[in-house]
Amino acid sequence: MMESSRRNFLKIAGLSVLGIGSGAVVGSRARGASKAFSPNPEALTAKRWAMVVDLRAGCPDGCKECIEVCHRIHNVPKIDNPKEEVKWIWTDFYEHAFPGMESRYTEEFVEEALQGSPVILLCNHCDNPPCVRVCPTKATFRRKDGIVMMDYHRCIGCRFCMAGCPFGARSLNWTDPRRYLKPEEVTPDYPTRTRGVVEKCNFCAERLAVGKIPACVEICRKVAEKAGTEPVLHFGDVEDADSEVREMIRAHHTIRRKSHLGTMPQVYYIL
C-alpha cells in the first residue's frame, strides 16, 4: 500500500518535472526513492535500545516530574477516572510491578532497598512483543532498533494488543483525549490522539530522531543532579558491549517484569 503510493508519488514527481520543462534530470525511480528520504544526521541510533532502572538510587520526588514531563510533551491527557486513564509511564508498588515475587520474608529487603518509593513502569519494548503479534493491521510494530511503535493513523481500536500485553502498558482513548487537554497546555510539535485508538510509550522515538535521549531519562538525570543523588533511569544500546546500560547489566543482577512469559522485556531493574 505504502510502497505503491510512494511509487505513484515519485512517478508523478518525475512527470511533472518533465512537463514543466525545468530541465532537471530525474534519476531512476528507485534511486529517487533512496535519495528522497534520509534520517536526520544527528539522530541517535542503536542496534537495540534498552533501559536500566536502578531502583537502589531512589528518586527524590517519587518519579512525579518524570511522569509529568513525559505526559506533557506527548500530549497524554490527564483523566482522573481510573477506567479511562491513559498512561505511558507510571508507578506502582513492588508487589504489583513484580506480582508473585513478593513474600513476607523478603519484604524487609525490598522496603530497605526501595525506601518506600514505588517502581517506575512503562512499555517494556519487548524483543518478542505479543502486542505486535496480535495486531490485525500492523498498527503496532517492532522497529529494527527494538522500539515497539504505534502508528496511530492505522489503529482500528480492536484492543487485541491490550489483551496481549502482559504489563498493562497500553491505554485506549475511550473518548476524544482533547476533552482533557487544555489548549494552552498542548505541545504543538507532537500530535494528540483521536478517540478510539490505543497508545503507549514509544521510547521517545521522535526525540531519538533528532539526537535527544528519552525525556524521562533526561529529566531523571536533572532531578538526581539537583538532589545530589544517582539517576534511576539509564538508556542506551544494549547490543553495544561498551554502553552504560550494558555495563550496568554486566555488573549487577537485574530482573525484568514477568520474564518467564518469554516476551523478552528490554527494561531491566536493579534492586
Binding site: T137, C155, I156, G157, C158, L172, N173, T194, G196, V198
Partner: peptide, 8 residues
C-alpha cells in the same frame, strides 16, 4: 466493539 469502525 471497534474504537475506529471507520478504519475497519
Amino acid at each position: 466493539d471497534l474504537g475506529r469502525p471507520d478504519r475497519a
